[in-house]
Design a protein around this nucleic acid. Structure first.
Lengths: 120, 120
DNA sequence: TATAGCTATTTCCCAAAGGAAAGTGAAATA
DNA sequence: TATTTCACTTTCCTTTGGGAAATAGCTATA
């Protein structure tokens, strides 16, 4: 007879959630996807649309998002070479996550405010 | 006439998403919420149910989750003092995010496998 | 020709995240 | 009495994330 109650299995949920986190982790990736999604396609546009985002970080994150096939980098070989970014169709599959997080964030702010209106 | 195309506003989505990330960021928080949610209530149970989670990190994360009113720490003052953890009702509001991320992770694995079956 | 703008890259640096391992104090068990 | 378990805490260390600022190569504009 064992004394120890065995723990409840939860890996069937924990593992896929962690797989997702490996792709969209970090402070900036989802924001960049949102920004490109609403129409910002140039490096500078994306950077200016997200306060606090520095060019170094944007550059690095764009590369990672490219590798995960969420964002496409397009080089236009016109007279002035132009580089622009757009979402890959695969990025659309993130929409449910983004909306769930948007809704939660809005509701959370409301809750915080109701509990303590002084916190802006 | 301005030459510069102004960037598209996306802060109405970016900001709440970042507010959410501030609460559930990091590698472990969602996993811990999932584990407690399926019934693991003791420190050691939670730790054992999540491979790779060390006691130091679990301890720290539990405190942060308590502060955000997602998890409740319960001290039972019986003959042996027992400490257990359970979800606050507020943690249930994270369910849509967790399910969206679980679904995405499962689908992502499938996609990776279809593209390159060698990567387990 | 000089200056400004775009799209980054590079260097340097600091703080936070997180892992390994040992320790702690209280209670339970042998 | 000695050992084990539980619930952490502490220490030490490495890795990662990310900010500031300078620079680079190209084109456009004055």
């Amino acid at each position: 007879m064992s004394k120890k109650k065995p723990y409840c299995e939860c890996l069937n949920t924990v593992k896929p959630v962690r797989d997702t986190l490996e792709v969209i982790n970090g402070k900036w990736k989802l924001s960049i996807i949102i920004s490109v999604g609403v129409g910002n396609s140039r490096f500078t546009e994306i950077q200016e649309s997200i306060p606090g985002l520095t060019p170094k970080v944007l550059s690095k994150e764009l590369k990672e998002l490219e590798q995960h096939q969420l964002i496409k980098r397009i080089i236009t070989n016109d007279y002035p070479v132009k580089i622009s970014y757009c979402l890959e169709p695969y990025a659309d599959t993130l929409t449910p996550i983004i909306y769930a997080m948007k809704d939660w964030g809005l509701n959370h702010k409301k809750k915080i405010f109701q509990e303590n209106p002084s916190e802006i």
